[in-house]
Simulated assay, not measured.
Amino acid sequence: MGTMIYRIMTKRVIDSLKGGRVVGLFGPRRSGKTTLLEHIKKEKGGGVLMVHGENLDAAEALSSQRTSVLARFIGDKKYLFIDEAQKIHNIGTNLKLIVDTVPKVSVLVSGSSSFELRNKIGEPLVGRSIYYHLYPFSLEEVKTDVSEMNAKLEELLIYGLYPQVYLEATIDGKKTQLESIRDGYLLRDILELDKVKESTFIFNLLRLIAFQIGHDVSYSELASNLNVNKKTVMRYLDLLEKSYVIFSHSGYSRNLRKEFTKSPRFYFWDNGIRNSLIANYNRLNLRDDVGCLWENFCMAEREKLLANNSISANRYFWRTYDQKEIDLVEERGGKLYAFEFKYSKDNIHVPKDFIKSYPGSEFVVVNKNNYLEYLTGQKVPRRQVAP
């Protein structure tokens, strides 16, 4: 467990630490934010004051709204790091006071509850804050040589890339770690924010989503299955996105009347969490959902790749009413990059309607033979180019 995986985000966070600025680091619980803060603190030497938002002494000083108290608390430190900063009352206003009155100090705050922390620090610090997201390990961060990665691939598809799960040596240990995250951390921010004591409904909602990877999701159908109204389903899916459990894509449409865009598709940030929710850790040869696992894994890795490397792109799926579809369409730099995720197949052809409507787009099938090229930033898709 002592292995240290270098996080790609590290240099960007360090480079952003400047006097008079607040850097925010958001991401799911247990994704490694505290470890990254500790690493940066060690790199910076003795000039860092690092506190936790649940520490009562720190919370009292950092919620005081008194410049003398804040200045005395910081002392002669050049850096102030606050882990789980959303726990501190009026943290945004107090950070603004620090930036205004102690401009030599660089501030780094972390939070798993992005919807709470960003709301608290966003408005008071407009123009003086910058945000980053730290997700579970990415394939780009853990990659070694091809043969070793291929040997690990099945394990990654089943148990995912949460740091403590990936670094756990045994299969039983991985299961225990995943179930600890699922039961102890996964929904904590939502339950605290929404004052919900019963998590059964949310887990049932997530299980329904787990079986619909790669398919359009009907809010009305989910509501009917859960015996709640549509607005309740939409509210909790939104909260689950903001707490980094799932993410969604909408349908892409520009030219064709028969392009379908009404219903979104949802994916999990981590395969292991998805599998823990449905209690299925079976090997791939015993599963009927390998396609779902592969699509979710590839989709999450593309998201991490773009975020970790500051690549701006709009992400969609593409589907027509007559069931022609493409798993992922990235719109960046005025061009479309289309991806189809198939674990074993490589002879999938781009739909003719897509070629006709979007000439000049690029298309690739990502499978178990070429995934490292497209999920770790080694290559831009150029296999089947639309005329």
Rank of each mutant, 00 (worst) to 15 (best):
I121A: 01
G127V: 10
G47E: 13
V364T: 08
K195D: 13
L167I: 04
P103C: 09
L226V: 05
D288P: 07
M1H: 09
R182L: 15
K77A: 09
D194S: 13
N347K: 14
L153C: 04
T3P: 01
R283W: 11
D100W: 13
L293K: 03
L208V: 02
F354A: 00
E330P: 07
D288S: 14
K262C: 03
R188N: 13
K33M: 09
S114I: 02
G214D: 09
P387K: 08
S113E: 07
A58L: 08
I355G: 02
I5F: 01
S248N: 04
F268P: 02
L305W: 14
S63I: 11
L256P: 00
R254A: 13
E123D: 11
Y162V: 06
Q323E: 11
V196M: 14
V48L: 08
R319N: 12
K195N: 12
N369H: 08
M4E: 15
R254M: 10
R7G: 05
V366S: 01
P163D: 06
N308S: 11
K324L: 11
P359Y: 03
R128W: 06
D83Y: 06
I348A: 11
S276L: 03
K44C: 15
A59H: 02
V290P: 14
Y6V: 14
A300N: 01
C298Y: 03
V99E: 07
Q177V: 14
K242V: 00
S357Q: 03
R72G: 12
T34L: 11
G333D: 11
D183I: 07
D238C: 04
E168W: 05
I82A: 04
Y132S: 04
T3K: 10
T232L: 09
S16L: 04
I190V: 15
D172M: 08
F81N: 01
K242C: 00
F354W: 13
S263L: 12
F247S: 00
K42G: 14
V23N: 03
N255P: 00
G291Y: 14
Y159N: 02
K345Q: 15
R319P: 14
D288R: 13
L372R: 01
T93C: 08
I91Y: 05
L237C: 12
P387F: 06
V366D: 00
K174V: 05
M50C: 09
N367Q: 06
E168R: 10
A61R: 12
N271A: 01
G47S: 14
N225H: 08
I213D: 02
F341G: 06
D322A: 14
V107G: 03
F203C: 04
T200L: 10
E154V: 04
F268I: 01
P359T: 03
L17V: 09
G272E: 05
V290T: 15
M9I: 15
V196H: 04
N90F: 12
G173I: 08
E373V: 02
S344K: 09
D270F: 06
H89R: 10
D238H: 07
T376Y: 00
E301H: 04
L108G: 07
K33P: 04
N347G: 05
L62N: 08
V196F: 04
P387V: 05
K33Q: 13
V142I: 15
P103A: 10
